[in-house]
Nucleic acid binder design. Structure first.
Lengths: 188, 188
DNA sequence: TTATTAAATGGACATTTGTCCCGGATCATT
DNA sequence: AATGATCCGGGACAAATGTCCATTTAATAA
């Protein structure tokens, strides 16, 4: 559920090193808490995370938030919006200090249209994401909360990060109160 | 939520007409209730729906089912599995009589690797799907059931199809009992 | 260190949702 | 018409979840 994609990052680094114009890909840094994207606004960049962890979330009228995903090294963001020419679907916030390679949208599209290897690489990444997103959705519907929570806790310990209770709840789609109840159950 | 994609279908029809080998793309028909794919098995085809309506669903250990999506004319299925070389993620069942153009996986991959226009077209379709899937997931978490139900009912009347209560519930991720309660509320 | 804010915890109660179940309606087949 | 299968509707109760809130515990700023 916390996905990383080294292959994609490697290719990005190569492109960064090779670039003619210096503005095609730039390195950007964000500090913990900053937003890389704001839902509903238009961004001019497509980014590949090279360091750190971000959360990708929706906020709606009732000001509740739903975390779509936690993303880490090698993940690409802003690609969908660039392909479909739409404003940012969700907000993305740095949960740790974050470094990214930021492609200009123009350059990103040039790559897509001119480089079939790149295009196929992105297809693979997107297929992966769809697998992930849809299986997660079904998972949370079909299995017990206990099950989903277990997975989340595993990831958390693997990654050695502390996710706030509020974020965990927003990811699981439940209230913090329910999360606490569930956590207590885990300790018998 | 019930998506169709005419552009994609048009391109498929052209390819079908032009094909050299007769086995690259074949037309297949399914009758209501038949499965186009079975979750967990390996299929050798990628299909584009040219007529009819299907449901795409997961079933899990507890034999509950979760409907990921209803798909209609122009939608492509089996693409993800072909790209990622994995068994079918979900089952797909014909809700009406259905006609499809069935690509052999080999030919489908040839197209992807050799035809950048096709590759970009698929990228666009996949981006669309991600937008759709993730916004639906958040939608159902953030908004009331009433809201989601309204949308489902609208679609149903637009498409002039009768979706079974069981399917509606599986799509909304609730029990039929809850669905009935909710429907009753709509009539004040 | 102290003041201030944010996060975590859990009780009490109200709602929502699920499970179990049975009777009625509908449709197809014999 | 009789039979069986499937779907629909809703009562009754149990379980899960949310809301509200007050207390405690970090975390951060002054």
């Amino acid at each position: 559920m916390l996905r990383t994609n080294q292959l994609f990052l490697d290719r990005t680094i190569t492109l960064y090193a090779q670039q003619q114009r210096q503005e095609d890909i730039v390195v950007r840094r964000y500090t913990k808490g900053q937003n890389l994207y704001d839902q509903g606004t238009v961004s001019t960049k497509v980014m590949v995370i090279s360091e750190g962890l971000v959360k990708c979330y929706f906020t709606e009228a009732n000001d509740k938030e739903y975390i779509v995903e936690f993303l880490s090294v090698g993940e690409i963001v802003g690609d969908i919006e660039s392909i479909r020419h739409i404003p940012n679907l969700c907000s993305i916030q740095a949960m740790t200090d974050v470094t990214v390679y930021a492609f200009s949208k123009v350059y990103f599209r040039e790559l897509l249209e001119g480089d079939i290897t790149w295009s196929n690489m992105l297809l693979d990444v997107m297929a992966q994401r769809i697998v992930h997103t849809s299986s997660r959705a079904s998972y949370q519907q079909l299995y017990s909360l206990e099950h989903s929570l277990h997975r989340l806790l595993e990831i958390q310990s693997q990654q050695d990060i502390a996710i706030k209770k509020g974020d965990m709840a927003a990811y699981l789609g439940i209230s913090v109160r329910s999360l606490n109840r569930e956590l207590k159950k885990l300790l018998e």
